[in-house]
Design a protein around this nucleic acid. Structure first.
Length: 334
DNA sequence: CTAGGATCCTGTCAGC
DNA sequence: TGCTGACAGGATCCTA
């Protein structure tokens, strides 16, 4: 869910749809989800991403800072009239359908039936009315929010300010040094800290640690520079693979045959695979609790000792083959 | 200062 | 079937 790859996917999808559209009004159904009592309007000039948060900039000088947290979703529905009109084009193709997915809707975030359900519904917290369509902010647990800020103050926001560089931008030396600052904490807790490295959530933390062959309960300070470097590269690889596959958007949630799918099944090696077979060694994936979070490991490939065993070494080289551009400084953020 | 637990909120699922 | 408790992919606040 709303981890960095999903948010990046939403950014790319929504950019094609709402940039240059006018935001005409906002309906707030849950005040907690939209705590700023100010009028907001204007034409969308751009969408930026800061870690897992999205910023929608308006030509009025206002910006919407959107964080989906655990269960947030953004679902865009074009106005019905527009779909009908455009479908009457000569070639019979819908311009909206070219820009969006599955019948004109574009949805991303926490995968659920809301992607295809009638909207608004009881999980709809905020409705953003655009000139050509409606953007629904749905959020089951109300942890997410949309804040209104002056565009000039976005980077001063307390959340944005604390964010560390993303794995693509961070140098291995810097990452290693940051681990030393939290040397007594579990490595998993440390890489989930957005002020250490930005963008990893529970899924990609588990996947990156597995692909690097590092046990999540290892103390951060016990990792060698080589291990820290490998972990950083694995984090890049699993997140890039997810971005390339579209994260948790409606396209991945609703399969071509119409059945619903879990986007995790496309790439997860350990996450939510407890009891299943490790794709690397054939052992059994286990679920444990680390830093208060459900954590998935292969106890054979991820040892608590700092020995670099053959299993972990060959494991990460497999992932290098998967992506193959570790060395590039691929920035997701513009 | 650090590390880890509690917490916000709603829904789902397993177990009884 | 209905109840209860555990748990859920984030981030922050509080406590030791």
């Amino acid at each position: 869910m709303p981890e960095l790859p999903e948010v990046e996917t939403i950014k790319r999808g929504l950019s094609k749809i709402i940039i240059e559209q006018e935001l005409q009004g906002v309906e707030v159904l849950c005040k907690k989800s939209f705590p700023c009592a100010v009028a907001v309007s204007g034409v969308v000039t751009g969408i930026r991403r800061f870690g897992k948060a999205l910023v929608v900039d308006l030509d009025s000088g206002q910006s919407l800072l959107i964080h989906l947290r655990m269960t947030g979703q953004l679902i865009y529905e074009p106005r019905a009239t527009e779909v009908v009109d455009i479908k009457n084009k000569d070639d019979g193709r819908s311009e909206v359908n070219e820009k969006t997915e599955a019948g004109g809707r574009y949805a991303g975030g926490h995968p659920s039936d809301n992607f295809v359900a009638k909207l608004p519904n009881k999980q709809t917290r905020v409705i953003l009315h655009f000139a050509d369509g409606i953007l629904y902010f749905n959020d089951q647990r109300k942890f997410g929010f949309i804040k209104v800020l002056p565009t000039t103050e976005v980077e001063q926001d307390s959340f944005v300010r604390k964010l560390a560089p993303e794995p693509w931008v961070m140098e291995a030396d810097e990452f290693y040094e940051k681990l030393q600052k939290h040397k007594g904490a579990c490595i998993k807790a440390v890489i989930l800290d957005q002020s250490v490295v930005c963008g990893l959530g529970n899924i990609y933390a588990d996947e990156a640690l597995y692909s690097a062959g590092i046990h999540p309960e290892r103390r951060a300070g016990s990792l060698s520079l080589a291990e820290a470097t490998d972990l950083l590269m694995c984090a890049r690889a699993v997140m890039q693979a997810s971005i390339d596959s579209g994260g948790s958007t409606m396209a991945t949630y609703v399969k071509p045959d119409g059945t619903k799918g879990d986007y995790l099944e496309k790439f997860a090696q350990v996450f939510r695979r407890e009891g299943e077979v490790c794709l690397r060694c054939g052992g059994e994936i286990e679920k444990i609790r680390v830093a208060g979070r459900g954590t998935h490991i292969c106890p054979h490939c991820q040892r608590l000792t700092s020995d670099v065993n053959e299993a972990s070494a060959s494991l990460s080289s497999d992932f290098k083959g998967l992506d193959g551009d570790y060395g590039k400084d691929r920035r997701v953020r513009d």
